[in-house]
Write a protein that binds this DNA or RNA. Structure first.
Lengths: 231, 231
DNA sequence: TACATGCATTGATATATATCAGTTAGTATA
DNA sequence: TATACTAACTGATATATATCAATGCATGTA
Protein backbone atom coordinates (compact mmCIF):
# COMPACT_ATOMS: atom_id res chain seq x y z
CA UNK A 1 0.00 0.00 0.00
CA UNK A 2 2.59 2.54 1.05
CA UNK A 3 5.38 3.52 -1.25
CA UNK A 4 8.98 2.72 -0.53
CA UNK A 5 9.51 6.34 0.27
CA UNK A 6 12.05 6.79 3.04
CA UNK A 7 10.83 10.29 3.95
CA UNK A 8 14.44 11.00 4.63
CA UNK A 9 14.32 14.74 4.54
CA UNK A 10 11.92 17.60 3.93
CA UNK A 11 13.54 18.69 0.68
CA UNK A 12 12.85 15.44 -1.12
CA UNK A 13 9.78 14.42 0.84
CA UNK A 14 7.00 13.17 -1.38
CA UNK A 15 4.50 13.46 1.43
CA UNK A 16 4.99 17.00 2.45
CA UNK A 17 2.34 19.69 2.63
CA UNK A 18 2.24 22.25 -0.16
CA UNK A 19 3.06 25.00 2.26
CA UNK A 20 6.67 23.82 2.47
CA UNK A 21 7.15 24.58 -1.20
CA UNK A 22 7.10 28.23 -0.14
CA UNK A 23 10.33 27.80 1.79
CA UNK A 24 13.82 28.04 0.39
CA UNK A 25 16.42 25.33 0.91
CA UNK A 26 17.84 26.93 3.98
CA UNK A 27 14.45 27.31 5.64
CA UNK A 28 13.50 23.77 4.69
CA UNK A 29 16.71 22.47 6.21
CA UNK A 30 15.81 24.25 9.41
CA UNK A 31 12.46 22.46 9.51
CA UNK A 32 14.17 19.20 8.71
CA UNK A 33 16.52 19.57 11.66
CA UNK A 34 13.68 20.18 14.08
CA UNK A 35 11.20 17.53 13.14
CA UNK A 36 10.45 14.19 14.70
CA UNK A 37 8.77 11.46 12.73
CA UNK A 38 6.51 9.43 14.97
CA UNK A 39 4.08 6.61 14.31
CA UNK A 40 1.00 6.40 16.51
CA UNK A 41 -1.04 3.27 17.02
CA UNK A 42 -4.77 3.26 16.43
CA UNK A 43 -6.48 5.05 19.28
CA UNK A 44 -3.40 6.85 20.54
CA UNK A 45 -3.48 10.54 21.32
CA UNK A 46 -1.24 12.77 19.22
CA UNK A 47 -2.17 16.06 20.89
CA UNK A 48 -4.19 16.34 24.07
CA UNK A 49 -6.56 19.24 24.64
CA UNK A 50 -5.31 21.44 27.45
CA UNK A 51 -1.67 20.39 27.13
CA UNK A 52 1.12 22.75 26.07
CA UNK A 53 1.44 23.36 22.35
CA UNK A 54 5.07 22.80 21.43
CA UNK A 55 4.82 21.19 18.01
CA UNK A 56 2.61 21.13 14.97
CA UNK A 57 2.00 17.86 13.18
CA UNK A 58 2.16 17.00 9.50
CA UNK A 59 0.32 13.77 8.85
CA UNK A 60 2.18 11.58 6.38
CA UNK A 61 0.28 8.32 6.78
CA UNK A 62 -3.01 7.15 8.25
CA UNK A 63 -5.97 9.09 9.59
CA UNK A 64 -6.50 11.17 12.71
CA UNK A 65 -9.48 12.89 14.26
CA UNK A 66 -9.49 16.42 15.63
CA UNK A 67 -12.02 16.73 18.42
CA UNK A 68 -13.05 19.00 21.23
CA UNK A 69 -13.56 17.34 24.58
CA UNK A 70 -16.79 18.95 25.70
CA UNK A 71 -19.30 18.47 28.50
CA UNK A 72 -20.03 15.21 30.29
CA UNK A 73 -17.33 13.29 28.42
CA UNK A 74 -18.95 14.11 25.12
CA UNK A 75 -16.70 14.91 22.20
CA UNK A 76 -17.25 16.94 19.07
CA UNK A 77 -15.18 15.97 16.07
CA UNK A 78 -14.14 19.11 14.22
CA UNK A 79 -12.49 17.38 11.35
CA UNK A 80 -10.18 14.60 10.27
CA UNK A 81 -6.58 14.86 9.16
CA UNK A 82 -5.14 12.63 6.48
CA UNK A 83 -1.91 12.79 4.52
CA UNK A 84 -0.66 15.43 3.75
CA UNK A 85 -2.49 17.72 6.11
CA UNK A 86 -0.89 19.97 8.68
CA UNK A 87 -2.47 20.00 12.11
CA UNK A 88 -1.42 23.06 13.98
CA UNK A 89 -3.37 24.68 16.65
CA UNK A 90 -4.98 28.03 17.14
CA UNK A 91 -2.98 28.30 20.33
CA UNK A 92 -0.05 29.52 18.25
CA UNK A 93 0.66 33.19 19.04
CA UNK A 94 -1.94 32.93 21.76
CA UNK A 95 -1.78 30.81 24.89
CA UNK A 96 0.28 27.95 23.47
CA UNK A 97 -2.24 25.43 24.63
CA UNK A 98 -3.94 22.76 22.55
CA UNK A 99 -7.60 23.67 22.19
CA UNK A 100 -8.61 20.35 20.75
CA UNK A 101 -7.29 16.81 20.92
CA UNK A 102 -5.93 14.84 18.02
CA UNK A 103 -6.02 11.05 18.03
CA UNK A 104 -5.06 8.37 15.52
CA UNK A 105 -8.04 6.52 14.06
CA UNK A 106 -5.82 4.25 12.03
CA UNK A 107 -2.09 3.72 12.50
CA UNK A 108 -0.83 7.19 11.77
CA UNK A 109 2.58 8.66 11.05
CA UNK A 110 3.26 12.32 11.62
CA UNK A 111 6.19 14.68 11.49
CA UNK A 112 6.22 16.87 14.56
CA UNK A 113 7.76 20.28 13.97
CA UNK A 114 8.74 22.66 16.75
CA UNK A 115 6.35 25.62 16.86
CA UNK A 116 9.26 28.00 17.48
CA UNK A 117 10.64 27.05 14.09
CA UNK A 118 7.26 27.64 12.48
CA UNK A 119 6.98 31.00 14.17
CA UNK A 120 10.42 32.01 13.02
CA UNK A 121 9.44 31.17 9.47
CA UNK A 122 6.24 33.19 9.76
CA UNK A 123 8.23 36.22 10.84
CA UNK A 124 10.89 36.05 8.17
CA UNK A 125 8.90 34.69 5.22
CA UNK A 126 5.80 36.71 4.48
CA UNK A 127 4.59 34.39 1.74
CA UNK A 128 4.62 31.57 4.28
CA UNK A 129 2.75 33.78 6.73
CA UNK A 130 0.12 34.72 4.16
CA UNK A 131 -0.43 31.10 3.32
CA UNK A 132 -0.94 30.21 6.98
CA UNK A 133 -3.38 33.08 7.32
CA UNK A 134 -5.21 31.81 4.26
CA UNK A 135 -5.42 28.36 5.82
CA UNK A 136 -6.69 29.76 9.11
CA UNK A 137 -9.32 31.67 7.16
CA UNK A 138 -10.35 28.58 5.24
CA UNK A 139 -10.82 26.71 8.51
CA UNK A 140 -13.07 29.54 9.66
CA UNK A 141 -15.14 29.27 6.51
CA UNK A 142 -15.46 25.52 6.98
CA UNK A 143 -16.53 26.11 10.56
CA UNK A 144 -19.35 28.40 9.41
CA UNK A 145 -20.73 25.58 7.30
CA UNK A 146 -20.40 23.27 10.26
CA UNK A 147 -22.30 25.70 12.47
CA UNK A 148 -25.23 25.68 10.07
CA UNK A 149 -25.07 21.91 9.71
CA UNK A 150 -25.13 21.30 13.41
CA UNK A 151 -27.63 23.95 14.47
CA UNK A 152 -30.07 24.18 11.57
CA UNK A 153 -30.26 20.70 10.11
CA UNK A 154 -31.81 17.69 11.72
CA UNK A 155 -30.40 14.23 11.94
CA UNK A 156 -30.97 13.09 8.35
CA UNK A 157 -29.35 16.21 6.94
CA UNK A 158 -26.38 15.99 9.26
CA UNK A 159 -25.84 12.32 8.48
CA UNK A 160 -26.10 12.94 4.74
CA UNK A 161 -23.46 15.61 5.15
CA UNK A 162 -21.26 13.27 7.12
CA UNK A 163 -21.34 10.52 4.50
CA UNK A 164 -20.67 12.93 1.65
CA UNK A 165 -17.81 14.41 3.67
CA UNK A 166 -16.34 10.99 4.37
CA UNK A 167 -16.58 9.90 0.76
CA UNK A 168 -15.38 13.09 -0.92
CA UNK A 169 -12.97 14.62 1.54
CA UNK A 170 -11.67 11.87 3.76
CA UNK A 171 -11.53 8.57 1.92
CA UNK A 172 -11.68 10.05 -1.57
CA UNK A 173 -13.19 6.97 -3.17
CA UNK A 174 -16.63 5.54 -3.41
CA UNK A 175 -16.92 2.17 -1.93
CA UNK A 176 -14.81 3.03 1.07
CA UNK A 177 -13.81 1.19 4.18
CA UNK A 178 -15.22 3.03 7.13
CA UNK A 179 -12.41 3.17 9.67
CA UNK A 180 -14.30 5.52 11.98
CA UNK A 181 -16.66 4.05 14.55
CA UNK A 182 -20.37 4.76 14.93
CA UNK A 183 -19.46 6.77 18.01
CA UNK A 184 -17.08 8.85 15.91
CA UNK A 185 -19.87 9.59 13.43
CA UNK A 186 -22.05 10.53 16.40
CA UNK A 187 -19.34 12.89 17.63
CA UNK A 188 -19.04 14.34 14.14
CA UNK A 189 -22.76 14.97 13.74
CA UNK A 190 -23.58 15.83 17.35
CA UNK A 191 -26.07 13.03 17.78
CA UNK A 192 -26.27 9.85 19.85
CA UNK A 193 -24.66 6.72 18.50
CA UNK A 194 -28.01 4.95 18.66
CA UNK A 195 -29.51 7.49 16.31
CA UNK A 196 -26.52 7.25 14.00
CA UNK A 197 -27.30 3.59 13.62
CA UNK A 198 -31.00 4.25 13.10
CA UNK A 199 -30.46 6.89 10.41
CA UNK A 200 -27.93 4.65 8.68
CA UNK A 201 -30.59 1.97 8.60
CA UNK A 202 -33.13 4.26 6.98
CA UNK A 203 -30.51 5.35 4.41
CA UNK A 204 -29.88 1.68 3.72
CA UNK A 205 -33.60 0.91 3.47
CA UNK A 206 -34.04 3.79 1.03
CA UNK A 207 -31.17 2.52 -1.13
CA UNK A 208 -29.05 5.61 -0.53
CA UNK A 209 -26.08 3.71 0.82
CA UNK A 210 -24.94 0.11 0.96
CA UNK A 211 -23.34 -1.12 4.16
CA UNK A 212 -21.56 -4.43 4.55
CA UNK A 213 -19.50 -4.58 7.68
CA UNK A 214 -17.04 -1.76 7.38
CA UNK A 215 -17.54 -1.33 3.67
CA UNK A 216 -19.80 1.56 2.74
CA UNK A 217 -20.93 2.57 -0.72
CA UNK A 218 -22.83 5.71 -1.60
CA UNK A 219 -25.44 4.54 -4.08
CA UNK A 220 -27.63 7.63 -4.47
CA UNK A 221 -25.39 10.62 -4.02
CA UNK A 222 -27.88 12.98 -5.62
CA UNK A 223 -30.53 12.21 -3.05
CA UNK A 224 -28.01 12.47 -0.21
CA UNK A 225 -27.08 15.92 -1.47
CA UNK A 226 -30.75 16.85 -1.54
CA UNK A 227 -31.26 15.63 2.03
CA UNK A 228 -28.14 17.49 3.11
CA UNK A 229 -29.38 20.72 1.54
CA UNK A 230 -32.95 20.59 2.77
CA UNK A 231 -31.87 19.68 6.28
CA UNK B 1 -22.61 60.76 24.51
CA UNK B 2 -19.86 60.71 21.93
CA UNK B 3 -16.68 62.64 22.44
CA UNK B 4 -15.82 65.66 20.37
CA UNK B 5 -13.31 63.52 18.61
CA UNK B 6 -13.16 64.40 14.94
CA UNK B 7 -11.55 61.07 14.00
CA UNK B 8 -9.61 63.13 11.54
CA UNK B 9 -6.87 60.69 10.76
CA UNK B 10 -5.60 57.28 11.77
CA UNK B 11 -2.48 58.60 13.44
CA UNK B 12 -4.35 60.56 16.09
CA UNK B 13 -7.49 58.44 16.17
CA UNK B 14 -8.65 57.70 19.70
CA UNK B 15 -10.93 54.97 18.46
CA UNK B 16 -8.56 52.86 16.50
CA UNK B 17 -7.89 49.20 16.96
CA UNK B 18 -4.69 48.20 18.72
CA UNK B 19 -3.42 46.49 15.63
CA UNK B 20 -2.73 49.86 14.00
CA UNK B 21 -0.17 50.63 16.67
CA UNK B 22 1.99 48.06 14.91
CA UNK B 23 2.23 50.25 11.83
CA UNK B 24 4.73 53.02 11.25
CA UNK B 25 3.66 56.52 10.22
CA UNK B 26 4.03 55.84 6.56
CA UNK B 27 1.95 52.68 6.72
CA UNK B 28 -0.65 54.40 8.84
CA UNK B 29 -0.88 57.23 6.33
CA UNK B 30 -1.53 54.67 3.63
CA UNK B 31 -4.45 53.28 5.62
CA UNK B 32 -5.70 56.77 6.26
CA UNK B 33 -5.75 57.56 2.57
CA UNK B 34 -7.78 54.50 1.74
CA UNK B 35 -10.45 54.53 4.39
CA UNK B 36 -14.05 55.68 4.26
CA UNK B 37 -15.90 56.61 7.39
CA UNK B 38 -19.55 55.66 7.10
CA UNK B 39 -22.47 55.76 9.52
CA UNK B 40 -25.11 53.07 9.20
CA UNK B 41 -28.64 53.38 10.53
CA UNK B 42 -30.09 50.77 12.82
CA UNK B 43 -30.94 47.68 10.81
CA UNK B 44 -28.77 48.52 7.83
CA UNK B 45 -26.44 45.98 6.31
CA UNK B 46 -22.73 46.77 6.46
CA UNK B 47 -21.51 43.63 4.70
CA UNK B 48 -23.78 41.17 2.94
CA UNK B 49 -22.99 37.47 2.90
CA UNK B 50 -22.13 36.33 -0.62
CA UNK B 51 -21.08 39.77 -1.84
CA UNK B 52 -17.52 40.63 -2.89
CA UNK B 53 -15.12 41.41 -0.08
CA UNK B 54 -13.41 44.67 -0.92
CA UNK B 55 -13.08 46.32 2.48
CA UNK B 56 -12.67 45.46 6.11
CA UNK B 57 -14.51 47.49 8.71
CA UNK B 58 -13.32 49.04 11.94
CA UNK B 59 -16.26 49.83 14.18
CA UNK B 60 -15.82 53.20 15.89
CA UNK B 61 -19.32 53.73 17.26
CA UNK B 62 -22.43 51.65 17.89
CA UNK B 63 -23.01 47.91 17.73
CA UNK B 64 -23.22 45.45 14.86
CA UNK B 65 -24.08 41.79 14.58
CA UNK B 66 -22.11 39.25 12.57
CA UNK B 67 -24.39 36.49 11.36
CA UNK B 68 -24.55 33.62 8.95
CA UNK B 69 -27.64 33.45 6.79
CA UNK B 70 -28.47 29.78 7.00
CA UNK B 71 -31.34 27.52 5.98
CA UNK B 72 -34.97 28.57 5.63
CA UNK B 73 -34.28 32.23 6.37
CA UNK B 74 -32.81 31.32 9.73
CA UNK B 75 -29.76 33.22 10.89
CA UNK B 76 -26.99 32.30 13.29
CA UNK B 77 -25.30 35.18 15.06
CA UNK B 78 -21.59 34.45 15.33
CA UNK B 79 -20.71 37.47 17.39
CA UNK B 80 -21.21 41.19 17.84
CA UNK B 81 -18.79 43.96 16.98
CA UNK B 82 -18.51 47.09 19.08
CA UNK B 83 -15.91 49.86 19.13
CA UNK B 84 -13.00 49.33 18.53
CA UNK B 85 -13.29 45.97 16.86
CA UNK B 86 -12.12 45.13 13.39
CA UNK B 87 -14.47 43.09 11.24
CA UNK B 88 -12.64 41.49 8.42
CA UNK B 89 -13.61 38.39 6.73
CA UNK B 90 -12.10 34.98 6.27
CA UNK B 91 -12.54 35.52 2.56
CA UNK B 92 -9.25 37.45 2.57
CA UNK B 93 -6.58 35.51 0.67
CA UNK B 94 -9.30 33.06 -0.29
CA UNK B 95 -12.31 33.74 -2.46
CA UNK B 96 -12.79 37.40 -1.58
CA UNK B 97 -16.41 36.83 -0.71
CA UNK B 98 -18.16 37.72 2.53
CA UNK B 99 -19.00 34.53 4.36
CA UNK B 100 -21.25 36.20 6.88
CA UNK B 101 -23.36 39.33 6.96
CA UNK B 102 -22.78 42.30 9.24
CA UNK B 103 -25.66 44.59 10.19
CA UNK B 104 -26.00 47.58 12.48
CA UNK B 105 -28.06 46.87 15.60
CA UNK B 106 -27.73 50.44 16.79
CA UNK B 107 -26.61 53.42 14.72
CA UNK B 108 -23.08 52.39 13.88
CA UNK B 109 -20.07 54.16 12.48
CA UNK B 110 -17.30 52.25 10.77
CA UNK B 111 -14.12 53.00 8.89
CA UNK B 112 -13.95 50.90 5.76
CA UNK B 113 -10.42 50.06 4.67
CA UNK B 114 -9.55 48.64 1.29
CA UNK B 115 -8.50 44.97 1.61
CA UNK B 116 -5.69 45.50 -0.90
CA UNK B 117 -4.12 47.95 1.52
CA UNK B 118 -4.45 45.47 4.35
CA UNK B 119 -2.90 42.75 2.23
CA UNK B 120 0.00 44.97 1.30
CA UNK B 121 0.63 45.62 4.96
CA UNK B 122 0.52 41.92 5.76
CA UNK B 123 3.14 41.24 3.14
CA UNK B 124 5.56 43.96 4.16
CA UNK B 125 5.04 44.07 7.94
CA UNK B 126 5.47 40.68 9.55
CA UNK B 127 4.49 41.90 13.00
CA UNK B 128 1.20 43.06 11.57
CA UNK B 129 0.79 39.70 9.86
CA UNK B 130 1.51 37.79 13.06
CA UNK B 131 -1.06 39.83 14.91
CA UNK B 132 -3.70 39.12 12.30
CA UNK B 133 -2.86 35.44 12.50
CA UNK B 134 -3.17 35.62 16.25
CA UNK B 135 -6.60 37.23 15.90
CA UNK B 136 -7.72 34.62 13.40
CA UNK B 137 -6.59 31.96 15.84
CA UNK B 138 -8.44 33.58 18.71
CA UNK B 139 -11.63 33.59 16.65
CA UNK B 140 -11.12 29.88 16.07
CA UNK B 141 -10.75 29.28 19.79
CA UNK B 142 -13.92 31.26 20.47
CA UNK B 143 -15.71 29.22 17.84
CA UNK B 144 -14.76 25.99 19.61
CA UNK B 145 -16.47 27.24 22.74
CA UNK B 146 -19.47 28.20 20.66
CA UNK B 147 -19.61 24.74 19.12
CA UNK B 148 -19.81 23.15 22.55
CA UNK B 149 -22.37 25.70 23.71
CA UNK B 150 -24.64 25.12 20.78
CA UNK B 151 -24.34 21.36 20.46
CA UNK B 152 -23.89 20.12 24.01
CA UNK B 153 -25.86 22.50 26.19
CA UNK B 154 -29.58 22.82 26.34
CA UNK B 155 -31.64 25.98 26.31
CA UNK B 156 -31.00 27.14 29.88
CA UNK B 157 -27.26 26.75 29.51
CA UNK B 158 -27.17 28.53 26.18
CA UNK B 159 -29.29 31.39 27.49
CA UNK B 160 -27.13 31.75 30.60
CA UNK B 161 -24.12 31.94 28.31
CA UNK B 162 -25.80 34.54 26.19
CA UNK B 163 -26.61 36.84 29.09
CA UNK B 164 -23.13 36.55 30.57
CA UNK B 165 -21.69 37.25 27.13
CA UNK B 166 -23.90 40.30 26.67
CA UNK B 167 -23.08 41.69 30.10
CA UNK B 168 -19.33 41.01 30.14
CA UNK B 169 -18.26 41.24 26.54
CA UNK B 170 -20.78 43.37 24.71
CA UNK B 171 -22.29 45.98 26.99
CA UNK B 172 -19.56 45.81 29.63
CA UNK B 173 -21.78 47.00 32.48
CA UNK B 174 -24.33 45.41 34.68
CA UNK B 175 -27.68 46.90 34.39
CA UNK B 176 -27.52 47.21 30.64
CA UNK B 177 -29.94 48.31 27.99
CA UNK B 178 -30.63 45.40 25.73
CA UNK B 179 -30.46 46.76 22.22
CA UNK B 180 -30.71 43.34 20.62
CA UNK B 181 -34.13 41.88 19.94
CA UNK B 182 -35.50 38.58 21.24
CA UNK B 183 -35.08 37.24 17.73
CA UNK B 184 -31.40 38.23 17.85
CA UNK B 185 -30.96 36.32 21.09
CA UNK B 186 -32.69 33.39 19.43
CA UNK B 187 -30.27 33.63 16.51
CA UNK B 188 -27.37 33.80 18.94
CA UNK B 189 -28.42 30.74 20.93
CA UNK B 190 -29.91 28.72 18.07
CA UNK B 191 -33.34 28.49 19.60
CA UNK B 192 -36.80 29.81 18.73
CA UNK B 193 -37.75 33.29 19.86
CA UNK B 194 -40.70 31.85 21.78
CA UNK B 195 -38.36 29.73 23.85
CA UNK B 196 -36.03 32.66 24.40
CA UNK B 197 -38.95 34.46 26.01
CA UNK B 198 -39.92 31.43 28.08
CA UNK B 199 -36.40 30.85 29.41
CA UNK B 200 -36.05 34.56 30.19
CA UNK B 201 -39.24 34.26 32.20
CA UNK B 202 -37.92 31.34 34.24
CA UNK B 203 -34.67 33.26 34.86
CA UNK B 204 -36.78 36.16 36.03
CA UNK B 205 -38.93 33.95 38.24
CA UNK B 206 -35.82 32.43 39.80
CA UNK B 207 -34.39 35.89 40.54
CA UNK B 208 -31.40 35.40 38.25
CA UNK B 209 -32.11 38.45 36.14
CA UNK B 210 -34.32 41.51 36.33
CA UNK B 211 -36.06 42.67 33.19
CA UNK B 212 -37.88 45.93 32.81
CA UNK B 213 -38.56 46.80 29.24
CA UNK B 214 -35.18 46.94 27.58
CA UNK B 215 -33.30 47.23 30.85
CA UNK B 216 -31.72 43.99 32.02
CA UNK B 217 -29.83 43.37 35.22
CA UNK B 218 -27.94 40.23 36.11
CA UNK B 219 -28.83 39.63 39.77
CA UNK B 220 -27.34 36.18 40.39
CA UNK B 221 -24.29 35.87 38.20
CA UNK B 222 -22.90 32.95 40.16
CA UNK B 223 -25.95 30.83 39.48
CA UNK B 224 -25.97 31.84 35.81
CA UNK B 225 -22.36 30.70 35.56
CA UNK B 226 -23.33 27.41 37.17
CA UNK B 227 -26.19 26.90 34.73
CA UNK B 228 -23.90 27.80 31.85
CA UNK B 229 -21.30 25.28 32.97
CA UNK B 230 -23.62 22.39 33.69
CA UNK B 231 -25.50 22.92 30.45
C1' DT C 1 -59.50 58.25 15.20
C1' DA C 2 -58.78 54.17 12.89
C1' DC C 3 -55.74 51.12 10.87
C1' DA C 4 -51.61 48.63 9.79
C1' DT C 5 -47.27 46.79 11.24
C1' DG C 6 -43.87 44.63 13.92
C1' DC C 7 -42.27 42.80 18.28
C1' DA C 8 -43.19 40.51 22.66
C1' DT C 9 -45.83 37.15 24.92
C1' DT C 10 -48.59 32.98 26.07
C1' DG C 11 -50.67 28.32 25.79
C1' DA C 12 -51.52 24.04 23.35
C1' DT C 13 -49.65 20.65 20.54
C1' DA C 14 -46.49 18.06 17.66
C1' DT C 15 -42.10 16.10 16.97
C1' DA C 16 -37.24 15.38 16.93
C1' DT C 17 -33.95 13.42 19.68
C1' DA C 18 -31.83 11.44 23.88
C1' DT C 19 -31.87 8.02 27.17
C1' DC C 20 -32.32 3.54 29.02
C1' DA C 21 -32.28 -1.35 28.95
C1' DG C 22 -31.33 -5.07 26.68
C1' DT C 23 -29.63 -8.33 22.69
C1' DT C 24 -26.31 -9.83 19.42
C1' DA C 25 -21.97 -10.59 17.40
C1' DG C 26 -17.23 -10.39 16.92
C1' DT C 27 -12.65 -10.29 19.04
C1' DA C 28 -9.40 -10.74 22.37
C1' DT C 29 -7.91 -13.03 26.68
C1' DA C 30 -7.15 -16.59 30.29
C1' DT D 1 -12.99 -23.90 25.49
C1' DA D 2 -14.80 -20.63 28.37
C1' DT D 3 -14.80 -15.86 29.60
C1' DA D 4 -14.71 -11.14 29.19
C1' DC D 5 -15.09 -7.18 26.58
C1' DT D 6 -16.22 -3.99 23.15
C1' DA D 7 -18.97 -2.28 19.26
C1' DA D 8 -23.14 -2.69 16.78
C1' DC D 9 -27.81 -2.88 17.03
C1' DT D 10 -32.95 -2.64 18.55
C1' DG D 11 -37.25 -1.24 20.93
C1' DA D 12 -39.65 1.38 24.45
C1' DT D 13 -39.93 5.53 26.77
C1' DA D 14 -38.99 10.20 28.33
C1' DT D 15 -38.07 14.86 27.31
C1' DA D 16 -36.34 18.92 25.15
C1' DT D 17 -37.59 21.91 21.73
C1' DA D 18 -40.10 23.68 17.68
C1' DT D 19 -44.24 24.93 15.73
C1' DC D 20 -48.72 26.85 15.45
C1' DA D 21 -52.27 29.99 16.68
C1' DA D 22 -53.69 33.68 19.06
C1' DT D 23 -53.35 37.99 21.95
C1' DG D 24 -51.55 42.18 23.58
C1' DC D 25 -48.96 46.20 22.98
C1' DA D 26 -46.44 49.53 21.21
C1' DT D 27 -45.35 52.80 17.20
C1' DG D 28 -46.13 54.86 13.14
C1' DT D 29 -49.30 56.31 9.46
C1' DA D 30 -53.45 57.37 6.48
Amino acid sequence: MSQTDPLKNCKNCSRRNNIFALLNDEELALVDQHRYEVTFNKGEIIFKQGSPLTHVACITEGLAKLYIEGLNKRNLILSFAKPVQMVGGPGIFNDYIHHFSVAAIEETTACLVDTRIVEGLIERNSIFACDLLKRANQISIDNFKKFINLTQKQMNGRMADAFLFLMDDIYGRNPFILTVSRQDIADLTAMSKENVIRVMKTFKDHQLIRVEGNLVEIINKKELVRISETG
